[in-house]
Simulated scan of single mutants.
Amino acid sequence: MPDADPPLTVRLTDPGDVAAALPHLLGFRPEESLVVVSLRGATGLRLGLTARVDLPAPEHRELVLRGLVRSLATDRPDAVLLLVVSEDEDDSAVPPERPWAGRLPELPHRPLVHEAVLAFDGAGIAVREALLVRRGRWWSYDCTGGCCLPHAGTPLPAGTSELAAAAALTGQVVERDRAALVRRIAPVGFLAAAGMAQACDEVGDDLARRAAELGWDEVVEEGWAAVQAAVEAAGPGSVERLTDRQVARLAWALRDVDLRDRALGLALSRSAAAAEAVWTELTRRAPAPLDAAPATLLAVTAWVRGDGALANVALERALGSEPSYSFAVLLRSALDACLRPAEIRRLIREAGAPRDARR
């Protein structure tokens, strides 16, 4: 199958551009979050790994920041950009050199930013800039100009950004929040689930009979043909919905490890978006534990195109369905180590090379 087109390269040179791009970098619109973006390259303008956590309580800051530093360090950044996303009001602080002057407004969450800067500095990683993103504006914690006073701020860039256009081209959908990502692949309702369970039982019995008659290898090849047909039918402009029996057939097919690994290669093909649509549908509709394989394939496809948020949500679904599913466990370890999408691509190619040579 043909390789996917090379990933699009988008450079964001202004802090406001990065602040406005957060929903596209994360896959959803963050709220009350600390976001850290890796900056790489000779100019320090190439964006790398993006990590997000909920704003931690003071007693949890050290532990949370230690994990962020460890994660970002795997990307070998030349520097990082800190962004606090919060709707909190300004703090009031008494300047030590002017205790008689009363309390002055101060950008919120400055102690968190201070601790984050120290944590990254302790790991030898410079913080290029620290920003507050709030109510359609951004502030720099380091800026002393009038534009960065608590009551001011700089409006986020308006219009469709280059990154937004690139995200749309790759099929990324920006959700309102992380909960919306979870709902995107949430299991179907009770009546639909009952119908799917019956279809899976019937198809499973049919496959057992065919395996006894034709042999398992023949059944596997039929399953691969079904996967290819479903992906082809899910191409651009497709509105056809898989039947319960089709979902059951594909879900049973992906329980075969070799077939699943062949399907893994679709993440690097020009059919990646169509394959992701199929994996999403199977994850939603297949009952546990048949949803574990498509959910993990969905996680791989999302991670390869840089959508870490969806990758993690899909992986949570896979491990929630079948905690011992080895493919999901291995991928969980890789994502926890912040293995870059480029490394995932390389591993997929290496895993697929021997099989390609045999065919």
Rank of each mutant, 00 (worst) to 15 (best):
residue 18 V to M: 05
residue 68 L to S: 08
residue 181 L to G: 10
residue 218 E to D: 11
residue 10 V to A: 02
residue 91 D to T: 05
residue 218 E to V: 06
residue 45 L to K: 13
residue 235 G to K: 15
residue 183 R to P: 01
residue 28 F to Q: 06
residue 274 A to S: 15
residue 127 V to D: 07
residue 62 E to H: 15
residue 255 R to W: 10
residue 121 D to T: 12
residue 213 E to V: 08
residue 356 D to N: 08
residue 290 L to H: 08
residue 133 V to A: 10
residue 137 R to M: 06
residue 237 G to N: 05
residue 77 P to V: 00
residue 168 A to D: 15
residue 182 V to S: 11
residue 350 E to H: 10
residue 321 S to A: 14
residue 135 R to T: 04
residue 91 D to A: 12
residue 26 L to P: 05
residue 145 G to E: 13
residue 225 A to R: 09
residue 179 A to C: 02
residue 91 D to N: 08
residue 66 R to H: 15
residue 1 M to A: 15
residue 74 T to R: 12
residue 271 S to Q: 15
residue 27 G to M: 02
residue 189 G to W: 08
residue 206 D to T: 03
residue 180 A to W: 00
residue 233 A to R: 15
residue 215 G to D: 09
residue 174 V to K: 08
residue 281 E to Y: 03
residue 188 V to A: 14
residue 236 P to V: 09
residue 30 P to D: 05
residue 95 P to R: 11
residue 316 E to W: 02
residue 17 D to W: 01
residue 355 R to N: 01
residue 304 V to Q: 14
residue 300 V to K: 11
residue 19 A to E: 04
residue 76 R to F: 00
residue 32 E to D: 13
residue 177 D to T: 07
residue 311 A to P: 07
residue 183 R to H: 09
residue 83 L to A: 15
residue 12 L to A: 03
residue 296 T to C: 12
residue 257 V to P: 05
residue 267 A to H: 10
residue 174 V to L: 04
residue 152 A to C: 07
residue 156 L to A: 11
residue 22 L to N: 07
residue 301 T to H: 13
residue 286 A to Y: 07
residue 77 P to T: 01
residue 249 R to W: 01
residue 147 C to V: 07
residue 348 I to K: 12
residue 212 A to K: 09
residue 102 G to C: 05
residue 270 R to G: 15
residue 252 W to S: 01
residue 89 E to L: 12
residue 37 V to Q: 12
residue 289 P to L: 09
residue 243 T to V: 03
residue 356 D to S: 09
residue 188 V to T: 14
residue 21 A to C: 01
residue 26 L to R: 03
residue 220 V to E: 13
residue 187 P to S: 12
residue 211 A to C: 12
residue 126 A to K: 06
residue 136 G to D: 08
residue 281 E to N: 11
residue 293 A to C: 05
residue 46 R to A: 04
residue 188 V to W: 09
residue 21 A to R: 08
residue 205 D to V: 13
residue 250 L to C: 03
residue 55 L to A: 11
residue 72 L to T: 08
residue 185 I to V: 13
residue 31 E to D: 08
residue 198 Q to R: 15
residue 116 A to Q: 06
residue 176 R to S: 09
residue 140 S to A: 13
residue 195 G to K: 10
residue 340 R to F: 01
residue 211 A to G: 06
residue 244 D to G: 06
residue 140 S to I: 04
residue 245 R to K: 04
residue 256 D to G: 01
residue 135 R to L: 03
residue 304 V to T: 14
residue 68 L to W: 08
residue 251 A to S: 15
residue 353 A to Y: 10
residue 221 E to H: 00
residue 337 A to S: 14
residue 124 G to E: 10
residue 325 Y to M: 07
residue 195 G to V: 03
residue 215 G to I: 02
residue 104 L to F: 04
residue 127 V to C: 13
residue 73 A to K: 05
residue 130 A to N: 06
residue 90 D to M: 05
residue 321 S to W: 05
residue 269 S to I: 09
residue 275 A to W: 10
residue 17 D to I: 02
residue 19 A to T: 03
residue 164 A to T: 11
residue 285 R to C: 02
residue 4 A to C: 11
residue 66 R to I: 02
residue 158 A to I: 02
residue 43 T to K: 14
residue 119 A to T: 06
residue 342 A to N: 03
residue 52 R to Y: 04
residue 82 L to V: 09
residue 1 M to L: 13
residue 73 A to S: 14
residue 104 L to P: 00
residue 134 R to G: 05
residue 18 V to Q: 11
residue 105 P to A: 15
residue 152 A to I: 01
residue 25 L to I: 03
residue 3 D to H: 14
residue 5 D to G: 12
residue 2 P to C: 11
